[in-house]
Simulated assay, not measured.
Amino acid sequence: MEESLYNLAFERSLLSSIIFDPAQFDDFDAVLTPEDFYLSAHQEIYRAMMSLAHRDLPIDEEFIRKELTAKGKFDERVMVEILTANPIANTKAYVQEIKDKAIKRHLLTLTTEIKRVTLEEELSGTDVVDLVEKKLYEITQSSQATDFKDAPAIADETLAYIEEMKARGDSVLVGVDTGYAELNKMTTGYGKG
């Protein structure tokens, strides 16, 4: 496959950044899927990171190693390459580049599928168009970021917020106390961020 359709250095750097700063994984989880990585070992490492994050376990070298070893998919050489890659600061650009290259690979696969279905299958033109539309729709949907959260996560966040408000009593504050009563009345406290 052409190198314009993947960048292993970007993938290594992004995975390295996650290992060295796991707090940013949630930002990637909403955008990237394991299939967005070109190298199958990178896909497995990202899949292990997803599994660890969803079980509230640390995303670090040891837990990733344990997760992959249990499945028989741990590759020491690839892990060393990732750990020796420089973590990056501007991860958003790297994520976008990885996602963009993945979309191009999916489109290339789709063109091959179109050729195969058109020439080898005994389908009508309408059926071929329907199939192409369905596959193209799947590609466009996977390219869009999702901000959906599962119900238990939303319920936990809401309950924590309710408990916090209950603990404050009949206070004017909705946010963080500014330390100034008049400012609290005007702003209802500082919000997140």
Rank of each mutant, 00 (worst) to 15 (best):
P58H: 10
I162R: 03
K192S: 06
E182T: 12
E3Q: 07
Q141I: 07
V31N: 11
P34L: 01
M79Q: 11
L14S: 05
K115D: 15
M79F: 10
F10G: 15
T109K: 12
S13P: 03
H54R: 14
L159A: 01
R55G: 07
K99Q: 13
K149W: 01
Y180D: 11
E44N: 12
A151P: 11
A102W: 00
L108D: 09
T111R: 02
A153E: 11
H42Y: 09
E35D: 14
K115V: 15
A48L: 04
F25L: 08
G175S: 09
A89C: 00
D27T: 10
G191T: 10
N184K: 09
D27A: 12
L5R: 10
A151E: 12
N7W: 04
I162D: 03
T33C: 03
S16P: 06
L39Q: 14
K166N: 04
V95G: 14
I103D: 00
F20H: 13
V129L: 13
I18D: 08
E2K: 05
V95L: 14
E133V: 08
K99Y: 07
S17Q: 11
H106T: 07
I114P: 12
A151V: 15
L123W: 04
L32R: 02
Q144M: 12
E35Q: 12
A93K: 11
F25Y: 12
V117L: 04
Y180P: 00
L131H: 05
T146S: 15
V117P: 02
A48S: 07
A48R: 03
T91S: 02
V129P: 00
H42K: 05
E76C: 01
S17Y: 08
E44W: 07
E138N: 11
D127M: 03
K134V: 05
D56W: 14
A53M: 06
A30F: 10
R47Q: 13
G179F: 04
E35H: 06
S13T: 09
D127I: 02
M1G: 13
E164K: 03
L159H: 05
D177N: 08
A181G: 10
K66M: 09
S171H: 01
A23M: 09
E81I: 06
P58N: 10
Y38H: 15
D170T: 07
V31G: 09
L108N: 09
I82A: 06
Y6C: 04
E44Q: 11
E113F: 13
T118V: 04
F74G: 00
L5D: 10
D156E: 13
L8S: 13
L57R: 15
G125M: 12
T126F: 13
L32K: 01
E11A: 14
I59N: 06
A89Y: 00
A155Q: 09
L14P: 04
V31I: 15
Q144T: 05
M49N: 05
K101H: 05
P58R: 11
F20Q: 07
V132C: 07
G175H: 07
A153K: 11
E76D: 04
F74V: 00
E3Y: 03
D36H: 14
E67A: 04
H42L: 02
S4W: 06
D21M: 03
Y161W: 01
L173K: 03
L57W: 13
L131S: 04
L183I: 14
E133K: 10
T33P: 03
P34D: 02
A9F: 13
H42E: 06
S142N: 07
F74M: 04
A102R: 01
R65V: 05
D170S: 13
